[in-house]
Design a protein around this nucleic acid. Structure first.
Lengths: 128, 128
DNA sequence: TCCGCTATATGTCATACTCATATAGTAAAC
DNA sequence: GTTTACTATATGAGTATGACATATAGCGGA
């Protein structure tokens, strides 16, 4: 259930997403194997079908990450369909992924703290 | 360790914060007792001293939440120091807090999924 | 009266995200 | 042979959120 505009009191809130979460996800997926944008979209979608990824955000983020040195790309022609830009992670990208994950662990701690305080006050509503 | 501007590859990332996290925190704190902006700042700060809250964001968010009907406020004079705007949660705000927390639970699930995939690939680095 | 603390507020800017739209190659259907 | 669908990348415009600076003002103590 994603809360949309005008649906409720927290309508401006698009589901409490984590800022910049797409970048570590891209790095994590690329750490498994090199991939192109459209394939990353599908891999991200299969991981969380309820929150489809925006193509504009993905492609722009990839270009930015390349400018920042986290990934590098090259055109891959010869397959069927249009040419695809194949991305792979750089050594710097690996370091980024580790640093980002440390940040995300702290984010999870803050989130856990919130939920703990909430449940202490209101109960866990049947959740374990 | 918060990664600051120019410190590393993920320098544009100010610590992987959750979008709009301040609003449910405000509601959760107000569910304990009515409070004014400055006091909310201190209560938020005591909860996470490593990420100080921006005053501009807090005060503007409070006014926006009041416009949205989640909280209401009144001036409190008579104490020492300048007048303070005392906020309390509305019934609508309670509903918001519950809805937001549901969103945050899903956010935590996505975060857990990321960290699980990361640890599966790189190990947990000595963390339990 | 100057400084520090309390308290609220606005101005401005950058970034992240959303939505719409453009472009183009391939392959199958009609 | 052209229309449709899928694959694939990209840009333009607009909004939302957050970051940083600064303004204002009451109060108490040095």
């Amino acid at each position: 259930m994603i809360i949309k505009k005008g649906e409720g009191c927290c309508s401006p809130e698009p589901g409490s997403r984590i800022r910049g979460f797409i970048q570590p996800w891209i790095l994590l997926l690329l750490s498994e194997k090199p991939s192109h944008g459209y394939e990353l979209l599908e891999r991200l979608h299969s991981g969380s079908p309820e929150t489809p990824m925006d193509t504009a955000l993905l492609y722009r983020t990839l270009r930015q990450m390349e400018a920042d040195g986290m990934v590098r790309s090259g055109w891959e022609t010869g397959g069927n369909g249009p040419a695809r830009r194949l991305y792979e992670m750089t050594g710097e990208g690996v370091g980024c992924l580790h640093a980002w994950t440390m940040n995300l662990r702290r984010t999870r701690e803050r989130l856990d703290e919130f939920i703990a305080v909430y449940e202490e006050r209101f109960g866990d509503g049947g959740r374990s």
